[in-house]
Nucleic acid binder design. Structure first.
Lengths: 133, 133
DNA sequence: GGAACTCGGACTAAAACGGTCCTATTTATG
DNA sequence: CATAAATAGGACCGTTTTAGTCCGAGTTCC
């Protein structure tokens, strides 16, 4: 509960590695360096690339580089890229666009939870990849 | 990911209810009022009682009342009571006392994660039950 | 004694998580 | 041109967590 998933954890490690690297970084390079599953980190990198946080270079000697400055990439960006922006809610009624909530209008804690969520997001938004290098 | 569990959600609803109530509140009263599983909310209440956040009154017309002022109970208190204090970490290497971490000294993001975790805890520590009533 | 409670263990279905495997495509290099 | 090293991505799987049920037992009021 309230734990970061391994994917996000690997994503952050990878982002830091790429940000600190001089040239392109391959999935193998990262998986070796941190003793992480290659396939898994590769998938995470693909998601980060698809989200536009890093750019891929295919083929031999390929790999990834940052798509923009590390100071312009927040932890929220990384989390959203990997988990999907829909995971942004602390409870489902704050997450879903449809606003489905079984407790419905009986729910007395929706507003305070919204405030908490806002504060949490602030934490992740404020911290940039540049700060973890 | 980063979602509150249903138990915690129910726990917060229950705490709010009890804090706002004039007399004792039973599990049935709460489960009826918010259309929640009775057994589940009953278990949550037991945990809250065991953690000393609320006091139980057994037998007929029994139920629960706050053990101390709502302003003196933080969201962290509620979460810890329900999930166990061991769940306090954002990643396992920050959670476990043994400090086990597969990435071990290769882990480059431990310190920044620690900072993030500290900020998150601050959010939950600052918010009190009295603020959700 | 019975009704309405709390207490708490055992159990289960479903979903999420962490991870593997396999195949296709792209690209530098000998 | 063949091959090796990469990315790209779908399919699958075992384990753990989650959310919830069920049941038996103890308590207290009427």
């Amino acid at each position: 509960m309230l734990k970061l998933s391994k994917k996000v954890e690997y994503g952050l490690i990878a982002m830091r590695h790429i940000a600190a690297a001089q040239s392109v970084s391959s999935a193998k390079e990262i998986s070796d360096r941190y003793a992480i599953s290659h396939d898994l980190v590769a998938k995470v990198l693909q998601k980060l690339a698809k989200a536009g946080l890093i750019v891929s270079q295919q083929g031999m000697n390929g790999g990834y580089t940052l798509a923009r400055r590390a100071a312009d990439i927040s932890i929220t960006n990384v989390i959203d890229a990997i988990e999907g922006a829909a995971s942004a809610g602390i409870v489902q009624c704050l997450t879903a666009d449809d606003g489905i909530c079984s407790i419905y209008d009986n729910c007395t804690i929706k507003n305070p939870l919204g405030k908490i969520q806002h504060n949490l997001h602030q934490v992740f938004n404020t911290m940039k990849v540049s700060e973890i290098v």
